[in-house]
């Protein structure tokens, strides 16, 4: 696989580290159901067939965390953007 890094251009996936689903949001620890919410946040992930937004870390490059939209069936990467532009979780 190759990932087009917004800073570094198209790079081999050996420069990146995979983390997983980028759509999960850290729950509010003050909420009454925090225990359950944190359990789901830590352990539960969707395993979609098709488009998947996922976190990749460009550790051997610009050290950016990226949100990569990848088709899990074809590995086609349709979008790559920097994380953290949408405000705090």
């Amino acid at each position: 696989m190759r990932i087009p890094c917004p800073f570094c251009g198209s790079r081999g996936n050996d420069e990146f580290t995979y983390l997983g689903d980028a759509s999960v949001r850290r729950p509010d620890p003050a909420a009454p159901d925090a225990m359950r919410a944190f359990h789901d946040y830590v352990y539960l992930r969707e395993n979609p067939s098709g488009l998947h937004q996922e976190l990749w870390f460009h550790g051997s490059g610009c050290r950016s965390w990226l949100i990569v939209t990848r088709n899990t069936r074809t590995h086609e990467v349709s979008e790559v953007k920097l994380v953290g532009r949408g405000g705090e979780a």
Binding site: R26, L55, F57, W65, V83, G84, G87, E88, A89
Partner: peptide, 10 residues
């Protein structure tokens, strides 16, 4: 880096 960039970018 993850905590900074992903969890608390502000």
């Amino acid at each position: 880096e993850f905590c900074h960039q992903v969890l608390w970018p502000s």
